[in-house]
């Protein structure tokens, strides 16, 4: 390749080959480096799961699930914690899903292009980045103090619902955006108005995507600890909230909404903060259950999204 007249050191055949070799070599080196970083990251996830199984799996049994917290680590359990988590999640889902879907539909299908829409959109983006503990301070200052609602299941549910609202709005918008424009035009062409189009065609088509967002949001809410600590939820709860179902008319009872409570991440934080090793085992057992729940939910959401993408193709 080298021309006799151009035999500067940069262009002679020898260093050109060396240059090429070095470039290919660094290419291969980077591929190995990328793979190493990847393996290291996944190893951390693996180590975390293995650590929880190792420390906590043997502690999980029927008694652990049906006992109240106790001063003796051996007889303590998470009954009040998992019941509390379940009830808080019911409130969170009941608020966040309709609100998030409605807001998503508005922003994607209805909103005119103007400064109000821009403002709402920037606002949602910003809310998604607000640290969760700030939502806790909002709940403490507004719900617990100003509105005097107390440290109840209802307040915790509302707080977590506001926290996961951006996740649901974004998921709704993305799944609406993926619906072909033809569907809207066909519906309008048949004389449907906007609401009929949304409720009859768009929402059913967007359902799997919205479901994915809802699951990811709920799994985030289940694991959240900081905002619930901030509202001052008690950590030693040795009783259950009143039952939502009763034998006499009207058969449902909403007193549980105003009951004090604890949830699984709080119980875990409480136990991990104590010096005794026995409580650390309890924390690991609680963490393992939490981890299993959130990983399963996320795994299901990922699988759902994967299937959805394959169907669209």
């Amino acid at each position: 390749m080298s021309t006799p007249g151009l035999s500067s050191s940069r262009f002679d055949g020898y260093s050109e080959a060396r240059l090429l070799k070095r470039a290919k070599w660094s290419d291969g080196l980077f591929a190995v480096l990328g793979l190493l970083v990847l393996v290291a990251t996944l190893l951390v996830l693996g180590a975390l799961v293995a650590d929880f199984i190792n420390d906590g799996a043997s502690r999980i049994d029927g008694d652990f699930l049906t006992s109240y917290p106790s001063r003796r680590p051996g007889s303590a359990g998470i009954l009040s914690a998992w019941v509390g988590t379940t009830l808080v999640m019911i409130v969170t889902a009941a608020l966040a899903v309709p609100l998030g879907v409605a807001a998503g539909v508005y922003l994607e299908e209805y909103a005119p292009k103007n400064w109000v829409t821009d403002f709402i959109e920037i606002n949602v983006t910003n809310l998604a980045g607000v640290p969760s503990i700030i939502y806790g301070l909002l709940a403490l200052g507004l719900f617990v103090q100003t509105l005097a609602m107390g440290q109840t299941i209802l307040v915790a549910g509302i707080t977590l619902a506001l926290l996961i609202l951006p996740i649901l709005i974004v998921a709704t918008r993305e799944s609406l955006r993926a619906i072909p424009q033809d569907i809207r035009e066909a519906s309008f062409g048949l004389g449907a108005d906007q609401w009929q189009t949304v409720s009859g065609y768009l929402l059913p088509a967007a359902r799997p995507g919205i479901l994915t967002g809802a699951i990811v949001g709920m799994s985030r809410a289940i694991g959240e600890t900081a905002p619930i600590i901030t509202i001052g939820a008690l950590t030693f709860i040795a009783f259950l909230p009143p039952s939502p179902i009763q034998s006499s008319f009207p058969f449902v009872n909403f007193d549980w909404l105003n009951s004090p409570f604890t949830v699984m991440p709080i119980q875990m934080f409480n136990w991990v903060s104590r010096p005794q090793a026995g409580f650390h085992i309890n924390a690991a057992a609680t963490g393992l259950i939490l981890l299993a729940m959130t990983l399963l939910m996320n795994g299901f959401a990922i699988w759902l999204r994967y299937r959805l993408r394959r169907n669209l193709r």
Binding site: V44, T225, V272, L295
Partner: peptide, 26 residues
């Protein structure tokens, strides 16, 4: 890429208090 990205997403789904336990005790 299709296989790896979900695993990275799973890390993002781990409750933060579990990461706290992992940091302190492991």
């Amino acid at each position: 890429r299709e296989v790896i990205k979900p695993f990275l997403e799973l890390i993002a789904g781990v409750p933060t208090v579990a990461f706290g336990y992992f940091a302190l005790l492991f």
